[in-house]
Amino acid sequence: MENALGISGPQAIMMAITASFTILGMVMLLAAMLMKARWKPSYAVEFVFVGIMLGLAWYGDLTSVKTYTAYQANLNAEERRISGNYDGLGEEAFDKVVTVIAFQWGFGFINEEEEISRNALMVKPGETVLLKIMSNDVIHGFNIPVAQITAEIDPDEKREMWIRAPDEPGQYLIQCVNYCGIGHAQMKAWLVVDAGEENNGENS
């Protein structure tokens, strides 16, 4: 089932039910106000109404748990592990360790040579990168759609996450997803997957 917003699945079903109930409620209110003869429903109708509401809540809860479980399973599935929380494996387990500073409004990426890069995270195809993310000021978000990672960066807290870089060289979006001030919409950076000279040599 796909609705006008292009959303399909349980979301669309819930939206359709909510919309129809809203419209129904408005029609009933108008009817109660404007109709000369008042409609007096029996108690049974009220029970049915409450029953439908409870059913909706149960259905919403069920689908959201299903979606969440599926997301977690996908995140932890061995063959598709592309990002996750750092689970204390030791920094040696990763190909690269990058310190990220999120500030108003941008990202600074500090590599292992203690060089800082503004709004560009440089990685090699397929390598695993440990990101130690810190906020300079307020709550920021850290989202890399291609790596399926979304994190909230709270002030005074070091957030450690890891990603596996895409195999395809190119530039991928990194963005802040928690409103952090007037410049939030411009708080974006590139995840740059660069094969480097060695691979270029192989290809040519």
């Binding site: 203690e114 709004n119 560009a120 130690k132 300079n136 005074d156 070091k158 590139w190 660069d194």
Partner: peptide, 29 residues
């Protein structure tokens, strides 16, 4: 808040970190 992170050793002591030019070399921006 960087000062606190610096004390904890999470970020380098140096406040004048050299620029990482690798993004420039590849022509990212």
């Amino acid at each position: 808040l960087l000062e606190g992170f610096r004390e904890d050793g999470f970020i380098p002591e140096n406040r004048n970190l050299p620029d990482d030019h690798s993004a420039e070399d590849v022509g990212v921006f």
